[in-house]
Amino acid sequence: MAGVEKPTMAVNIVAADRPVWSGKARSVTIPASEGGMGILPNHEPVLTVIKSGTVTVVDPEGTRQSFKVDNGFIAFDSNKLTVAVDRGSVVTAEPEDSDALAS
């Protein structure tokens, strides 16, 4: 990927009984209680309740990863996103992402 380095943030997805995933991400989409919510790096600090659904993480290489989650909340501060859920599991990790190639 040429051009300007995109900003990233640290993401931590933890379920009640184990950590699910952690790493860097370019953007994250979460199923907030009032509809989907996208979070980009340097978002303002926010604490949001999320419902069951899918958390999608786009990592610095443009890989899109999905996680199935159940009830929880996210906390974002100092460029660190914590997704804490009752249950969580990795659904897919797609290596190819058209958005990333286009950019």
């Binding site: 907030a32 209680s33 600090p45 309740v49 501060d77």
Partner: peptide, 16 residues
Amino acid sequence: PLYSFEPSVDEVLDAI
């Protein structure tokens, strides 16, 4: 840091 709570403080409290 100063958080914003969504949808509202009360609901976040109720959930957390």
